[in-house]
Design a protein around this nucleic acid. Sequence first.
DNA 1: ATAAACTCTATAGCAACTATAGAGTCAATC
DNA 2: GATTGACTCTATAGTTGCTATAGAGTTTAT
Lengths: 136, 136
Amino acid sequence: MMKIGELSKVTGCSVQTIRHYEKEHLIASAERSEGNFRLYDEAAVEQLLFIKQCRSLDLSLPEIRQLLALNRSPGAQCDDVNRMMDKHIEQVEARIQELTKLNEQLGMLRRSCSNRRTVEQCGILRNLSATPASSG
Amino acid sequence: MMKIGELSKVTGCSVQTIRHYEKEHLIASAERSEGNFRLYDEAAVEQLLFIKQCRSLDLSLPEIRQLLALNRSPGAQCDDVNRMMDKHIEQVEARIQELTKLNEQLGMLRRSCSNRRTVEQCGILRNLSATPASSG
DNA sequence: ATAAACTCTATAGCAACTATAGAGTCAATC
DNA sequence: GATTGACTCTATAGTTGCTATAGAGTTTAT
């Protein structure tokens, strides 16, 4: 059994984040020592590493909670896992497209100005101040 | 002079957002009617449209606050504008790269599973549970 | 006068953490 | 045993840019 600081070291999750995950019901409430310190076993390590892996994939806490629940039903179909992953991939791809488009807009805006101008002559600020053209 | 609801209609900013911007000092505190209703002129419309344009470019409120301040010094050099824009572009590009990499990882993970499997056999969950290989 | 629409301020919530305060516990050292 | 520093605890607040709601006041039209 290890205390929270040790678990933090082993998993790379901060003490506060571990407590947060407990509060958010991603991990079970820990057993306590006589002094009321949380005590963790090897299963907690594995669970936290799982959570950390999911977070690195930008999965949300509710999504991770769901995956953890599915993981507790080994005989169940994993359709839900696939479905979640598909949806998540879609969302990431959509965000990439948004940002790519934004990047183009920013590039155009940036090219409307160069250094050694005054604010009055600044192409960026002028474009930001212009009412957008009626795009049909 | 118009009331906040009218300003909201004209600019497409919600009433609550307008009040929020006032509280965050993006726009000046409005004059008030006898009944304590906020009163706005045409300059407020322009300012809100400017803010809205900046938000559509994902500029943060502090960044927009800065641009608004620069806009009030027409004779000043617009170097800061360019610098901010450059930095913002970098950040967007970095985020695109992150997400692109994430998308690849998600794709690989997704291909490790297909439908009609149990949780126990699920390639996604297995990979999520595996300790990452020591990548040097 | 009434009722509906509008406006106001204050507060809380969202997501996933992160920090801090004040108090308690533990372990090592003297 | 006393002391001290490290660790742990709970509670609360903050971050960002909104968004919603409650309860109360104002305005407008009938």
